[in-house]
Simulated assay, not measured.
Amino acid sequence: MLKILDKYILKRYLVTFITMILMFIPIGIVIDVSEKVNKMIENKVAFSAVAMYYLNFTIFFANLLFPIFLFLSIIWFTSKLANNTEIIAILSSGISFKRFLKPYIIGASIISVFALLMGFFIVPKASEGYWNFRYNYLIGGGKDEMQDKSDIYRQISKDEYIYVSSFNPDSQMAFNFSMEKFEGDQLKYKVTANRIQYNPKDSTYTLYGFKKRKIGVLDDQLVSLPKKDTVLNIDIEDLTPVVYIAETLPLYELNSFIKKEQLRGSSNLDVYKVVLYKKFSIPVSAFILTIIAVAVSSMKRRGGMGINLAIGIVIAFAFVFCDKIFGVLGQKSTLPPFIAVWIPNLVFGILAIYLLRNAKR
């Protein structure tokens, strides 16, 4: 009896969730096409590029709105069970509310694993295609639009720091270059140049207006040359990564990228960490939202399914709003990214426990 019941609820859980996604994604595509079709025609975008963009669009937004789709689908079919008095019959037969939740937790586990794997490997590739299309065809500036190319600071090793006032990715040239070498708190030497040019053939750099000041105990040594070719520990392509670069990297590459940017003293480090932590927090939210949805919709209400859906929509959008607000705080404020990302799950986890206790009564 229980196995049949578990299969029945689990099937409804998964089918309703998939149906909800298949219903709303086409609506999102139609709205997006209506807003951007003129720009696509103006830029003469090939049909294959548009088709690939909307494939990436589907994956990108399904992942972005995953909590809302999951929450509303559970509210929908659980409310139908409650209105048909099926839940009352199940609990009246002696099955505990905790046992009744089992197929929901199994469904949440399946969705969580799927969301985790998507976030690790598939969503980054879709995000790259989505953002590249937008900035190449819809905004008009390509990746350069999303690069901060002025006043760039980098820590390139444990004790070496560089600065350039501006950088041109097309010519691969930077201006007002300086590099400082330290031993502990003591400056050992400083290199400056009016401009610095990257040479891709041999991966060297040409420094124009080269000056090197070596700090001595009693006096300094100064070397000045009109031009000098040298090798520097700088990855020219990573000098000004696009802001959304973290969203386009699989998990193993993202971890390596964050370590490299941390060593370089990147100003966008918190942005990258928020992306990393969300890969784990979003799948966990599936369990929290599942418990809240069941607790809210398992009770038969006088207003019927509409009341449950209204409550569900408010809670779902409150969760997404909270997730976005704290995500921005983690990127832009002094709030640690790890804490900022997990606060929504903590708050709504407490809400889930409270609602579950009331539902059991």
Score class of each variant (00 low, 15 high):
Phe317Ser: 06
Thr85Cys: 00
Tyr130Asn: 12
Phe57Asn: 06
Ala352Ser: 13
Tyr135Asp: 00
Ser171Pro: 05
Gly142Asn: 05
Lys125Gln: 10
Thr240Pro: 00
Ile4Ala: 13
Lys228Glu: 15
Ile236Met: 12
Leu249Gly: 01
Phe321Tyr: 13
Ile21Ala: 02
Tyr153Arg: 09
Tyr244Cys: 10
Leu269Glu: 01
Leu249Trp: 08
Leu289Ala: 03
Lys212Gln: 14
Leu263Met: 11
Leu10Gln: 06
Ile27Asn: 05
Tyr8Ile: 04
Leu346Ile: 15
Lys214Val: 14
Asp229Lys: 14
Ala340Cys: 07
Ser96Asn: 07
Tyr277Glu: 04
Glu145Arg: 13
Phe210Met: 06
Tyr161Ile: 14
Val243Ile: 13
Thr78Leu: 04
Asp144Ser: 11
Ile59Asn: 02
Ile245Val: 14
Leu232Thr: 02
Lys201Thr: 13
Pro226Cys: 04
Ala340Thr: 03
Ala46Gln: 14
Gly94Glu: 01
Trp131Arg: 14
Val271Lys: 09
Pro103Lys: 06
Pro336His: 07
Pro67Cys: 07
Gly216Cys: 08
Asp229Ser: 08
Met118Val: 15
Glu183Gln: 12
Ile162Gln: 02
Asp323Val: 00
Gly209Met: 07
Asp170Leu: 10
Lys102Met: 12
Glu35Asn: 10
Tyr135Val: 02
Tyr244Met: 08
Ile343Trp: 01
Phe77Asn: 02
Glu42Lys: 13
Phe280Pro: 03
Ile90Gly: 00
Phe71Ile: 05
Ile236Pro: 05
Ser171Gly: 02
Met173Ala: 10
Phe177Ile: 12
Ile75Arg: 03
Ala340Asn: 04
Phe57Asp: 08
Phe71Gln: 04
Ala51Pro: 02
Gln197Arg: 08
Gln197Asp: 09
Ile31Leu: 14
Phe47Arg: 10
Gln186Asn: 11
Thr192Asn: 11
Asn268Gly: 04
Ile282Tyr: 07
Ser48Cys: 04
Thr248Val: 11
Phe47Leu: 14
Ile288Ser: 05
Tyr130Phe: 15
Lys360Thr: 14
Ala49Glu: 15
Val274Phe: 06
Trp342Pro: 00
Val242Trp: 06
Met179Phe: 05
Pro226His: 06
Asn194Glu: 13
Tyr244Leu: 09
Val50Gln: 09
Arg357Pro: 00
Met1Val: 09
Tyr161Asn: 06
Tyr244His: 10
Lys80Met: 12
Ile74Glu: 05
Phe60Asp: 03
Ile343Phe: 07
Ile18Lys: 04
Asn38Trp: 03
Ile288Val: 15
Pro336Ser: 09
Ala115Cys: 11
